[in-house]
Simulated scan of single mutants.
Amino acid sequence: MPLTAAQQHRYEVWASNLLFLTFAISTAVGLLVALGYLPRHRGPAQYGYLSMYTAAPPLLVVYYYIRRGARVAKILFLLLYAFVLLQIISGWRPLTSYATPAGIVHLLAQQGLQIGACVLLFLSFRTPTKPI
C-alpha cells in the first residue's frame, strides 16, 4: 500500500509523542527519586540522571524537529539511539547494575518506547506517493 504524506507525518508525530513520553517518564522518576519515594541508585547510576538533565534540552529540540518532519533530526536521533543500543548490548551497563525493580522497569519502559519511536521513524522515511 502506498504511503501518503499525511501517513508519513502521522508516523513522525507518533514517534515524537513516544519520545516526549520517555522524557516525561524520566523526569517523573527523577522527581520521585529526589523526593525519596524511590530509592537512589548507587555508584555510576547516579550520574545517569545528571547526564539526562544536561542532554535534555538538545534532545527536546530534536524531538520537536522530528515532529516537524525534519529528516536531519530523525537521522540524528536514530544515530544517537544506535549508539545507546550498542552500549546496552555490549554490557556497558547490565540490568543487574540497577539496584531496584523500579530502575529496571524504568529502563525497559524507556527502551521499549524509544524502539517504538525508531520503528515509526524508519516507516516515515518511505517516500510518500502523490495523490491522484
Rank of each mutant, 00 (worst) to 15 (best):
2 P>K: 15
2 P>T: 09
4 T>N: 08
4 T>W: 01
6 A>F: 00
6 A>G: 08
8 Q>G: 03
9 H>W: 06
10 R>V: 06
10 R>A: 01
10 R>P: 02
11 Y>C: 05
12 E>D: 15
12 E>Q: 15
13 V>N: 10
13 V>Y: 07
13 V>M: 14
14 W>Y: 02
14 W>A: 03
15 A>E: 05
15 A>R: 02
16 S>L: 02
17 N>F: 02
20 F>M: 06
21 L>S: 10
21 L>Q: 09
21 L>I: 02
22 T>D: 01
23 F>T: 12
23 F>D: 13
25 I>T: 03
25 I>M: 10
27 T>F: 13
27 T>L: 13
29 V>L: 08
30 G>Q: 11
31 L>Y: 11
31 L>W: 09
33 V>F: 05
34 A>W: 05
35 L>Y: 11
35 L>C: 04
37 Y>F: 15
39 P>H: 07
39 P>I: 00
41 H>C: 07
41 H>V: 04
42 R>L: 13
43 G>Q: 03
44 P>L: 14
44 P>G: 06
44 P>D: 12
44 P>T: 10
45 A>I: 12
47 Y>T: 02
47 Y>E: 11
48 G>R: 04
49 Y>T: 04
49 Y>P: 05
50 L>N: 04
52 M>D: 14
53 Y>K: 08
54 T>Y: 15
56 A>K: 03
56 A>E: 01
60 L>C: 10
61 V>K: 04
62 V>W: 00
62 V>G: 02
63 Y>D: 03
63 Y>H: 12
63 Y>L: 03
64 Y>C: 03
65 Y>F: 15
65 Y>G: 01
66 I>W: 00
68 R>H: 01
68 R>P: 10
69 G>P: 10
70 A>P: 05
71 R>Q: 06
73 A>P: 06
74 K>D: 03
74 K>V: 01
75 I>R: 07
75 I>V: 14
76 L>F: 02
77 F>L: 08
77 F>S: 00
77 F>W: 09
77 F>A: 05
78 L>W: 12
78 L>A: 14
78 L>I: 13
78 L>G: 10
80 L>W: 00
80 L>Q: 07
82 A>F: 12
84 V>W: 09
85 L>A: 03
86 L>K: 05
87 Q>K: 08
88 I>T: 09
89 I>S: 11
89 I>R: 07
90 S>H: 13
93 R>M: 12
93 R>K: 15
93 R>D: 15
94 P>H: 11
94 P>Y: 14
94 P>L: 11
96 T>V: 15
96 T>P: 13
97 S>I: 14
100 T>H: 14
100 T>S: 15
102 A>S: 11
102 A>T: 01
103 G>N: 13
103 G>M: 12
104 I>Y: 10
105 V>M: 06
105 V>C: 04
105 V>S: 04
106 H>C: 06
107 L>H: 13
107 L>E: 14
107 L>F: 14
107 L>K: 15
108 L>P: 15
108 L>H: 12
109 A>I: 15
110 Q>L: 11
110 Q>Y: 11
111 Q>C: 07
113 L>P: 08
115 I>R: 07
115 I>G: 01
115 I>N: 01
119 V>M: 01
120 L>H: 06
120 L>D: 06
121 L>H: 05
121 L>W: 07
122 F>M: 13
122 F>T: 05
122 F>H: 02
123 L>K: 14
123 L>S: 00
123 L>T: 00
123 L>C: 14
124 S>I: 05
124 S>L: 00
125 F>K: 01
125 F>H: 11
127 T>W: 12
128 P>I: 05
131 P>M: 07
